[in-house]
Design a protein around this nucleic acid. Structure first.
Lengths: 348, 348
DNA sequence: GTCGGGCTGCAAATCGTTTTGCGACTTCTC
DNA sequence: GAGAAGTCGCAAAACGATTTGCAGCCCGAC
């Protein structure tokens, strides 16, 4: 068991220096060229030699240094995903989808939280693009983009795809979104068909494309809906309903621009002694896992976040391979109305 | 506005090749050495020259190629985080904590889902370590480790820290965990003090350290508790309660090894006409966001996942800087009992 | 007047791969 | 049996930064 291959002398218990291709070549009695070619298969190598080299490689557990490969090839084999907050279920799903595809297509994935677009953080991540640590970036916007001139600058000459939110001021950047308008339209019609007439909208950040689309779609059915803006968190749904109650606003239907705000709202309504759905019908958007668990279950519109992630990754990588995004088309994914217990006929 | 510096001729609309230090040097009329030194400050440079170079650098938006830096320095400036599934709230929180610290300490973060320890995936990510794409790895185990010999092999000579779960078979690898025993002990005593005597435990994967510790702590108060094993998902709590009901098992207290299973169990109990907490008291573990939202609120033990992430990152990076983990101590973080409506006195 | 030393800047080696040009060797063909 | 064709391997030049040894310059000091 000692030194069966004569290299045990190098083994130490501290993380020993990894083997270089040079050393493998030396051990096999050939030049690095030969080793490289057996690995890449770009030129034929004598089968006997090849096998000898392969054996040594597995024996030594040799892996080529990625830094050197990077330098030579100019490709890092990595893409980035920038999300406002990775600990959100919602963005986690996107991340999962992106990762699936990246993995499948042999790209590494660097996930970055922008902490809701903290400019300092964003700058860091855009720098990854510039230094070519990543070849492209999937960006999920969390607020109005016009503020981030950095993004505008970067998007000009770097491969970027928008996921989940498209950005109106940057129409040339491809995007993958849900069909927000159609989804919200279904919700609006559903509640209108149930006889509701007084509705309140708890919308998201004002500048976001999704907020605008969803609000517009709901107003198709409820032109006079009172619209308030929250921050997509449970608490803001809760707080905004508190405000409504304080002003004795009368309504029988409440649209949450996402499920969390809707659930927060529902909680507050019940605390105030209002019954859901007998007194107020509540709907959300997203169909997060919690939506099925709360009582009553939340009527909502399902978005396939993982699919958004998957499609975004496909788009980005397609663009990378094609060397440009001219041929890449933005996509809009279908949504599905999920009826649960939180909606019912308008009280008479 | 045209060619104020004479380099506009190079500007194209397709992502032009990034500038090299060579080109900056040429433009400034100096050698690359001088440019490198103005950047690194490792040797004095004539202030006038330095300023001229700095100006060009910002003008050209030059950033050194990370691949080249990597190759030369041998450091990638990246650490990895392997979690079973990034779309879980639970692991998302860990990721957030890790990211905070990585960002602060100037490390990039590569997050990888192992898809609940899919060996193929894991292998890929361990390879990142070997190729030195990442300098170290934070690993959150999702099942018994003994199966993953790959991890055992890698852990020998690579910088690894376990987060959330320690691995008994690898005692030398530093870890950051919650004090599972103390937390579960609090739950056990709480229910015992409420007069409960017949308890059921819905535990997690059998081989996990946390499962073992929590079960052991609960059995301190309920030595005869019936123990079933689930997979940490809502559905498994739901299904296991179905089994219990089918066998007409009698119990007044139910321990979920995490909140999701507890909530799933609660849902099923209510469907069966049992009231929580009047007929059965239910407790969980983790204090996920959902725990406060369900009705009744779930009594549980709060773990600070983000802090686990933060501490893990600190440990890993400390080890990297020290060049070894001999001086790095594992940590155990405190937990907190959160009382909500799902627990009450035992029915008489 | 020249020698030492601080200050700058240049050329060249280096990191570990990939890739190309070239040559040596085998094999085939007429 | 010699030239053509085909195989396989080596040496060396990239890739883009960092870092070292060396050299020129200017200054003051003896």
């Amino acid at each position: 068991m000692h030194g069966s291959l004569g290299y045990c002398e190098f083994v130490t218990d501290t993380p020993s220096k990894p083997w270089t291709m040079q050393q493998i070549a030396a051990a096999a009695g050939v030049s690095v060229t030969t080793v490289s070619h057996t690995l890449s298969g770009k030129r034929p190598v004598n089968p006997a030699t090849a096998e000898r080299i392969q054996k040594l490689i597995t024996e030594f557990e040799y892996v080529p240094d990625s830094g050197a490969q990077r330098l030579k090839s100019g490709r890092s084999g990595m893409i980035g995903l920038a999300v406002p907050d990775i600990s959100h279920w919602y963005f986690g799903r996107i991340a999962r989808g992106v990762e699936e595809v990246a993995d499948e297509l042999d790209y590494g994935l660097i996930i970055c939280s922008t902490s809701n677009s903290d400019p300092r953080r964003e700058k860091r991540y855009f720098n990854l693009l510039r230094t070519r640590s990543i070849e492209g970036l999937i960006y999920t916007a969390s607020r109005e983009i016009s503020a981030s001139d950095e993004l505008v600058r970067v998007s000009g000459n770097s491969p970027i795809v928008f996921a989940d939110e498209k950005v109106d001021t940057l129409p040339d950047v491809p995007s993958v979104t849900s069909s927000n308008f159609v989804g919200a339209q279904m919700l609006g019609r559903h509640l209108r068909d149930l006889g509701h007439t007084r509705a309140v909208i708890i919308a998201g950040f004002a500048g976001l494309h999704s907020t605008i689309e969803r609000t517009r779609a709901i107003k198709e059915s409820f032109p006079n809906a009172l619209t308030l803006h929250g921050d997509f968190e449970l608490k803001s749904g809760y707080d905004l309903v508190s405000d409504l109650l304080a002003h004795e606003v009368r309504f029988t239907a409440l649209f949450g621009c996402n499920d969390y705000m809707a659930i927060g709202a529902m909680t507050r309504l019940r605390e105030a002694g209002l019954r859901v759905p007998e007194d107020v019908s509540v709907v959300g958007f997203d169909d997060v896992d919690m939506a099925a668990i709360v009582t009553p279950g939340l009527t909502t519109v399902r978005q396939d976040m993982a699919e958004i992630g998957r499609r975004s990754a496909h788009l980005l990588i397609a663009g990378l391979h094609a060397g440009g995004f001219d041929a890449v088309e933005s996509e809009s994914l279908p949504t599905e109305l999920i009826l649960r217990g939180s909606t019912g006929p308008a009280p008479r």
